[in-house]
């Protein structure tokens, strides 16, 4: 392989890796993500029928979706949903629950402190750091630009 440079080899390999099936992935992401949202909407409608106000419906729906995501992770179903749905399963709040519960389950053997508790945020950690971080930045911009209105 003396005739091939690193760049040439990388390019050669790049051409031979099967490309992800983007169209299929997007359709499945739409169906799975959409179904999770429809399920959330159903929960929301039921809660408002019981007379909860808008704010309580929003938090109640989130709580129940997280519970569902965690439960499906626990019984070994959510990884299969994720395999089919991709981002459609990862982006909704059920995916967030999956990203917390799956490492917590996985690292139980390492103990409840250095296993479950410390590894729990392995995957979700960046989402929290940059999610909270960017909301602070947006908040500051809002105060400065819109005068806190």
């Amino acid at each position: 392989m003396e005739k091939m440079s690193n760049k040439e080899y990388q390019k050669y390999i790049e051409e031979r890796i099967p490309k992800p099936t983007y169209a299929k992935n997007m359709i499945f992401a739409f169906i799975v993500g959409g179904s999770i949202c429809v399920f959330g909407q159903i929960i929301g409608n039921i809660l408002s029928r019981y007379g909860l106000d808008k704010e309580k419906v929003a938090s109640g729906t989130s709580i129940l979706l997280v519970l569902t995501g965690a439960f499906l992770t626990g019984i070994g179903v959510y990884d299969k949903i994720g395999k089919v749905g991709g981002a459609g399963a990862a982006i909704p709040i059920t995916g967030f629950a999956n990203s917390l519960v799956s490492p917590a389950m996985e690292f139980k053997r390492e103990g409840f402190i250095f296993g479950v508790a410390s590894k729990m945020f392995n995957i979700a950690g960046p989402v929290l750091v940059y999610g909270v971080g960017s909301s602070v930045v947006v908040g500051i911009l809002y105060i400065v630009l819109a005068g806190g209105g």
């Binding site: 890796i17 099967p18 992800p20 992935n25 992770t73 626990g74 070994g76 959510y78 990884d79 299969k80 949903i81 994720g82 395999k83 749905g85 991709g86 399963a89 990862a90 995916g95 999956n98 990203s99 519960v101 799956s102 490492p103 389950m105 996985e106 690292f107 392995n122 995957i123």
Partner: peptide
């Protein structure tokens, strides 16, 4: 998997390669 990649129950998609 747990050393090199993701927890078993995490819903990630594996690349074709």
């Amino acid at each position: 998997e747990r050393q090199f990649r993701f927890p078993l129950e995490y819903g990630a998609q594996r690349p074709f390669s």
